[in-house]
Computed example of a mutant assay.
Amino acid sequence: MKLFHFSENSDIKIFNPRTIYDQTDAKVWTIDKYHAPHYYFPRECPRVCVWPKEDTKELDITRFFGMSHVNRMIAIETDWYDRVRKGSIYRYVFDSADFELEEENAGYYVARRPVTPIEVERIDDLVTAILDEGIELRITPSLMPMKEYVIESTINFSMIRMRNAKQE
């Protein structure tokens, strides 16, 4: 299995563990293949990603996927659309043998020692990359109303960089 890390920096030779937020132990963070499209965005872009789980209620499946019949959706704010459309990112590829599962629902894997990527790939057309994964991309003026619906639902979700979202 391959794992991935996404960056706007094209020349990272070695990934050293670091602490983020209020964590005390330093880690190198990667993501599995299924969840990787959640990171096909400029780093600071706020987004809400949703997909069903086994016990998701039919009402929530209809609410989030009823108009398009996809099984995953990512929403971003209107103000970020041009940056996503014109942006590019680098997908660093790692051998999973160097990592351990940190959070299954989000697809996070971590290493607690320095790791070297086995390859790096540039992704230029981020919108097409997302759509090619069969994911609906929604553009909305603000993520905050969706955030509230998602939190109260039975749907699986990941909310990334929400500190950068419009705080209505």
Rank of each mutant, 00 (worst) to 15 (best):
E58W: 02
C49A: 13
M73P: 01
R63T: 15
P117L: 03
R85C: 09
V110I: 15
P117V: 04
R72V: 00
T78H: 14
V115H: 07
R47C: 02
L131R: 15
M144I: 11
M67P: 02
G66M: 13
S68I: 02
A97P: 04
K86R: 06
L137V: 11
I89H: 11
P145M: 05
P145L: 04
V110G: 03
V93C: 07
S88P: 04
D98T: 06
P46W: 00
K147L: 10
T116A: 08
E121Y: 14
E119Q: 12
W80H: 07
I139E: 08
I89F: 11
C49N: 08
L126M: 14
K53W: 03
P52V: 00
P145G: 03
A111F: 04
W80V: 01
V50A: 09
P145D: 03
G134D: 02
W80D: 10
L131A: 14
T128K: 14
E103T: 11
L131W: 05
D98W: 07
I89D: 15
T128H: 03
R85N: 14
I139Q: 07
E121V: 07
S142V: 07
I118C: 13
V93G: 01
I74T: 07
Y92A: 15
E104I: 08
L137P: 07
E77R: 05
V50C: 10
K147V: 09
H69Y: 13
G107C: 12
F65C: 08
D95L: 09
A75K: 01
S142D: 09
L143I: 03
R85S: 13
R113P: 00
P46R: 02
N71E: 11
A106C: 10
D132T: 03
S96R: 06
V70A: 11
T116W: 00
A106S: 12
L143C: 03
D132Y: 00
I139K: 14
D125H: 09
Y108P: 00
A75Y: 05
E58N: 13
H69L: 13
W80R: 06
F99D: 12
E103H: 13
S88F: 14
K57V: 12
V84I: 15
V50N: 08
M146Y: 05
R47P: 02
I76D: 01
L126V: 10
I123H: 02
A106E: 12
R138I: 05
E54D: 11
I135Q: 12
I130E: 02
D79K: 13
L59Q: 12
T78D: 15
N71P: 00
K57Y: 05
L101C: 15
R138M: 11
M73N: 11
R91G: 09
N71V: 08
R91D: 04
M146E: 00
